[in-house]
Design a protein around this nucleic acid. Sequence first.
DNA 1: TCAAAAGTGTTTAGCTTACACCCATGG
DNA 2: CCATGGGTGTAAGCTAAACACTTTTGA
Lengths: 217, 217
Amino acid sequence: MFSYRHPHPAVTTNVVIFTIVSDSLKVLLVRRARPPFEGSWALPGGFIDLAEDLEDSAMRTLERETGVRGVYLEQLYTFGQPGRDPRERVIAVAYYTLVPFERVKPRTHDGVGWFALDEHPKLAFDHDEIAAIAARRLAAKLDYSTIAFGFMPEEFTLSDLQHVYEIIQREEIDKRNFRKRVLALNHIEASGERRNGSHRPATLYRLKNPGQITFIK
Amino acid sequence: MFSYRHPHPAVTTNVVIFTIVSDSLKVLLVRRARPPFEGSWALPGGFIDLAEDLEDSAMRTLERETGVRGVYLEQLYTFGQPGRDPRERVIAVAYYTLVPFERVKPRTHDGVGWFALDEHPKLAFDHDEIAAIAARRLAAKLDYSTIAFGFMPEEFTLSDLQHVYEIIQREEIDKRNFRKRVLALNHIEASGERRNGSHRPATLYRLKNPGQITFIK
DNA sequence: TCAAAAGTGTTTAGCTTACACCCATGG
DNA sequence: CCATGGGTGTAAGCTAAACACTTTTGA
């Protein structure tokens, strides 16, 4: 095997992984153990292996750094501005995903944590920009895809789902209209169970086709 | 300067550049002068320099191979499956754009040419897949952005513009409804000129904010 | 019995679609 | 004067938005 006589940059994959908990959109960050930006928070990620697919690399480094596995990743954008890594040319292929808070348990030591999107610390490299672009894409996709269902655990109430929309879009939604719209999509069905609280029990719903993100309209 | 002790793949940028001419959506291809896939048609592109931005690389290699310059590029997707280049690991950051046929004149020798999207030759590498994804993205974006205006020369008639929509979406559009919709966007204005033919002269329009692609709704 | 969230329909406004004929020019 | 594409309005249907009260449970 020979190589092209061309420059070879380093390539990383990075993952912006969102969840919603206690009324806020959060992103999973890891603290850097080594320079550059030692001690800063950053998006999970790492260098690709030459034999692995980009998405596999994103999965692998996400699991290695946070313990999170088995999530569905969607490619976000590729960031390659010279100088974004102070040492050498590094191109970052960024992915994003949404997970239900209850089902994904990152390793819980003090180098990994969920941070509210609007009050996280300044991140290493250009990761602030990457996270911001991911958040923008997420909000845009709510309207024309079933991406929000990715935030949901196996069973959820319509109020839970509405809550996700309200937090990401930062505006209140009419309950009746929301229910009409989401039920008309025919993507979810009542599971037969109900959830109790100190109020009227709520019908639990589940996805008809788990794992599928489809486009609306 | 030191390097990470990590694998370094090769990275290319590639451009899917569309135009519309004689009732068909076309893509600009170049014939490969060297192995691998010598003699095959491929998307224009090439290896990045370590000091240049990804988009600059896409521009530079596009101009080098086709003579086309000064176009607006939008990042499409990054393709990195191992084995997509038979020699070594190559990651391709793909861009796409639309140009008015009249205004963009690729170098006209027999190694560069416009090919109808639905009857181009089998392409080198995974470039068939890249072109197909670009075409899909293009059709999707017609509905919620002003991307179609990118196909237009400085002055154009409403029929010209409608034609673009019909070709990309492969369906006929009602003339009156189309005009209402596009004029309501308030992105174009009559230039005052008219275009003659062997029929009633058509009002010429131009963009109010040339170069801007904005989102609708 | 109170607090808290679940659940439920109707009316209105705006937007989208369907649809057909006359106009201005060049040849 | 004929062929060709340019240009125009209205009605109907559908989708989206606004809007308030009753129900069921746990504490």
